[in-house]
Amino acid sequence: MDKLQQVIDRFNLNVLTIEDVPQSFSSAVYQIKLMDHRTVYIKIPYSKAKLEREYTVLERLRDELSVPQVLDYWEGNEDVTGALLLAAINGVPATGRVDAELSYDIGVQHAKLHAIIPNDQDFNSAVSNVYSQWSEFIQKQFYSFAADVKEVIEPRLFEQSLQHFERHLKLLPSPDGPCFIHMDFRPGNILVYENQVAGIIDFESVRIGATEMDFTKINRDIFMKYPGTMEAYQRGYESIRPLIDLQEVLPFFRFTDAFNAIGWCKRRGIEKHRNFLQENLAYLSAFFMKVQ
């Protein structure tokens, strides 16, 4: 039986229409319009760990942040990893132009996530605590992609990358945490309505860690594209909690993000993700031209 149909049957849904949700890279996500004209979402993560992590975090954060409400949860069977049935949030991904007003609110909402202090139960949940081995976690992430990257880029650029990583990892400031970090905080996972943040989605990669890694993708996709947004974001963020010195950490994490993204493209299919691959290759090459 088709996996999606199994999930629909399990949740006992009367379906009118089904649409794939694009830009979902670690789960299969479907927008479901029901016969009573309500809209819900089915999310089928690619692994049990992602399923359990997202369910745990959504239940934990539901009274603290605007996150999708879990309407139903299925642990799965031998064919399906499991699934979440999620209520819709009235908003659209922030993938268009971002102005200072919206960037300010993104800063507010991001800080609210980081301001949630993990408790004893959180440290014993499905959410991994990587804060206590923060440098080791960054290393593990980087080197997990290195074998893939090595097959794609020139040997000299690869060696430069390894040397730069090891040298600058030691120069990072003391980690800011422990707190919940989204790990994929990008425009596609920030829903907006009337130029305000309506909700934050996709918590399957969440960790208990340090904040500095969590600014990487909004730097790449918002700050570097739209002038004035970093300053507005900082004002919003600092209205909730202190912000680390972004200029001290963003160059390093932008570099590691580009390196890791190249490895990710190799794993997921170069032809399918060629544009993203070329974008990160160009950034990495230009980066080392500047630091020489």
Rank of each mutant, 00 (worst) to 15 (best):
73 Y>Q: 03
104 Y>G: 03
31 Q>H: 01
211 T>Q: 06
132 S>P: 09
268 R>K: 15
168 H>V: 11
286 A>D: 09
212 E>I: 07
66 S>Q: 14
21 V>G: 01
97 R>D: 12
59 E>L: 15
292 Q>K: 09
160 Q>M: 15
134 W>S: 09
234 Q>K: 10
247 Q>D: 14
207 R>V: 05
43 K>L: 03
213 M>N: 08
129 N>L: 08
16 L>A: 12
148 D>P: 09
224 M>T: 12
138 I>D: 06
168 H>T: 13
3 K>M: 04
186 R>D: 05
266 K>R: 14
12 N>A: 14
190 I>F: 03
9 D>W: 11
250 L>F: 05
58 L>N: 09
242 P>G: 03
64 E>M: 10
250 L>Y: 00
188 G>N: 09
130 V>T: 15
136 E>Y: 08
224 M>S: 15
46 Y>K: 07
257 D>M: 11
236 G>S: 02
222 I>G: 07
141 Q>G: 12
125 S>N: 07
278 Q>G: 08
5 Q>H: 11
3 K>I: 09
244 I>V: 11
282 A>C: 01
107 G>M: 07
262 I>R: 09
186 R>N: 14
272 K>G: 06
59 E>M: 13
106 I>H: 00
153 I>Y: 11
21 V>H: 02
89 I>Y: 12
151 E>G: 10
208 I>T: 02
273 H>Q: 01
174 S>N: 14
138 I>C: 06
128 S>F: 15
220 R>M: 10
22 P>N: 00
141 Q>P: 08
236 G>N: 11
67 V>N: 06
218 I>N: 09
114 H>W: 07
244 I>Q: 13
245 D>W: 12
225 K>S: 08
193 Y>N: 11
207 R>C: 04
218 I>G: 05
85 L>F: 01
237 Y>W: 05
212 E>T: 07
61 L>V: 04
186 R>T: 02
97 R>Q: 13
234 Q>C: 08
135 S>G: 13
48 K>R: 12
116 I>V: 13
207 R>I: 04
28 A>R: 03
139 Q>T: 15
